[in-house]
């Protein structure tokens, strides 16, 4: 990322950032939960970060407990930027699935693994685990074996579920 591009990003988002830092010539922005959608929209529309490479959750074990991390990539300028937002357990983050189509499944994954809810998501349900799964496995307090590990596994076919 060039120095001028970096400065213009910071200038455009002035007042909406909690903090920002640079590591290995890549910029990370930390924003408030209420601003995340607006900041991402500005990055997409003004600075042509047209690709959402990844969206993931993090359990940091300190309040506010979780973080949602957005990794953006600009096809035009060939650089990357990271946006982080901290959320408490039970909080809702606004969805970006209407801005980037891939965010649909990525948000479902974050919900599946951490229980972070996304407001306005069209179809927020588990994606990797079964619908009747109890708990959120990537939370730090989740036992690796899950709950009811010693109970025999009962398989249920699709028609038996309904």
């Amino acid at each position: 990322m060039t120095e001028t591009r970096k400065n213009s990003i910071l200038e455009a988002l002035k007042g909406r950032l909690v903090s920002a830092y640079e590591f290995r010539e890549e910029l990370t922005l930390i924003v408030k939960k209420e601003d995340v959608r607006g900041v991402l929209r500005t990055l997409k529309e003004t600075f042509s970060y047209d690709m959402l490479t990844d969206l993931c959750g993090v359990d940091l074990r300190e309040p506010p407990r979780f973080a949602v991390v957005y990794h953006l990539h600009s096809m035009k300028y060939g650089d990357r930027i990271r946006v982080k937002v901290r959320v408490e357990d039970g909080d809702e983050v606004e969805t970006v699935s209407d801005m980037w189509g891939c965010a649909d499944w990525l948000e479902r994954e974050a919900y599946d693994m951490f229980g972070i809810r996304f407001k306005g998501h069209p179809d927020l349900r588990r994606i990797l685990l079964t619908d009747d799964f109890v708990g959120y496995p990537l939370r730090k307090d989740f036992p690796t074996e899950g709950y009811d590990f010693d109970r025999p596994f009962e398989v249920r076919l699709e028609e038996e579920m309904a």
Binding site: P143, T144, E145, G146, Y147, F149, F153, V155
Partner: peptide, 13 residues
């Protein structure tokens, strides 16, 4: 894989 997502032996199903 003694984990939450793996069936502990196919003889369970």
């Amino acid at each position: 894989f003694r984990t939450y997502n793996v069936v502990q032996g196919v003889d369970q199903i």
